[in-house]
Design a protein around this nucleic acid. Structure first.
Lengths: 207, 207
DNA sequence: GGAGATACTGTTCATTTAGACAGTATGCCA
DNA sequence: TGGCATACTGTCTAAATGAACAGTATCTCC
């Protein structure tokens, strides 16, 4: 793929910026305005060359429809938007989106799963799962409504609060275990509500 | 915010789907086509009501410029695209984007930092940083070209391969330490190339 | 110095598109 | 039964827009 000239790169950058910021592709007139061109055809000519070099897809006739093809874009995957809940109330299934405290946006390739409407995220509080290398402040992505396998990490509702535990089957009986010697070992999972199964984790550097 | 009718929600969903898949907002004619309307004004009427209810922003006169305002969108932040390198060659700064093996897309709020052109990602190999709860297979986001503080995790080029280590200052002298008793303790960091400083981590559930 | 590419100005034209007007059918609620 | 909102069909218009044509200046490379 041949390289773009400085001007051409500037135009590609501007289109990308606008698409990210506004969610709308700029028209040729708007591009001309931004660069101070008095003729829209200057933009036209640039776009023709950029398209010829393969950095813009074909969208003949359509308006505000420039499809950028950047090197990273070729690797880019669909981005999922997962709601973050502070703590999950009992009546969870009904009113979800309204109570979201935030939103994690991450591509599904990195996430490793295709999110469903039952996918949600929690911020980890405490170090009860430090043995599984899940730290205080981590954001965990969970899947609601699936049956956990033995050894998987789950979020369970204990004392009206979501807590992460390892789910274990011991002679057919489900148990929950905290991965930290400071916490009691096995909790019968008979009447506990499993809110979600661990799927992914995101951690920010401290500080 | 009043609720949308079923049809109105279908239209909002379709617009969102198209914007995510194509990167381009559908025109009224395309929406009419998709739903089998013989009149574009059916779409027009729906959009008017959706806008009135506050689920679409004002973009008068602009074409293909419907701005969706979904509940999650209100929390949504700018998504950064970070290249993944398998291993970082010595001539790093020059040719970056070309050699990317993949791309992590994640919103900057969750990531915790605003990415720069020097931000990149690596997949962790081995368990040399298990003491800092960084596991084999994790994806770490690093910042290139910044000076690490003592105690921060860094990627260093050792034997032509990137390895994660803890960066330490011992009486003014920089050292690298592996966070696993199996590995040698302190390595003088005099002539080592620090490729990046740890900023964030993403982990997928095993299996 | 000349050829060719880039980087524009200025203009015209056909198409796409949003927005408005007029009218019909259907279901719901009082 | 009447009123009202939703959910459409059908038509028209003006503005936004992409695309094309003609022409100029500058730069690099040969």
């Amino acid at each position: 793929m041949p390289d773009l000239t400085v001007r051409q790169q500037q135009i590609v950058d501007f289109i990308q910026l606008r698409q990210e910021q506004e969610g709308i592709c700029p028209s040729r007139a708007e591009i001309a305005d931004h660069f101070g061109f008095r003729s829209r055809n200057a933009v036209n000519e640039h776009l023709r060359l950029i398209r010829q070099k393969g950095f813009i897809g074909e969208t003949e006739g359509k308006m505000r429809a420039l499809k950028l093809i950047t090197p990273l874009q070729r690797h880019r995957q669909k981005v999922a938007n997962i709601p973050i809940f502070g703590s999950i109330p009992a009546g969870f299934a009904q009113a979800k989106v309204q109570e979201a405290k935030g939103c994690v946006s991450i591509d599904i390739g990195t996430l490793g799963i295709t999110p469903t409407p039952g996918t949600f995220a929690l911020e980890v509080r405490g170090d009860s799962m430090i043995g599984k290398h899940i730290m205080d402040g981590d954001i965990v992505v969970l899947e609601q409504g699936v049956n956990p396998k033995s050894g998987e990490v789950v979020a369970a509702l204990i004392d009206n609060e979501s807590t992460l535990k390892t789910f274990l089957l011991n002679r057919g009986k489900p148990f929950l275990r905290a991965e930290n010697p400071k916490y009691p070992d096995l909790i019968p999972a008979q009447e506990l509500v499993i809110q979600g199964v661990f799927r992914a984790l995101i951690r920010r550097a401290a500080g």
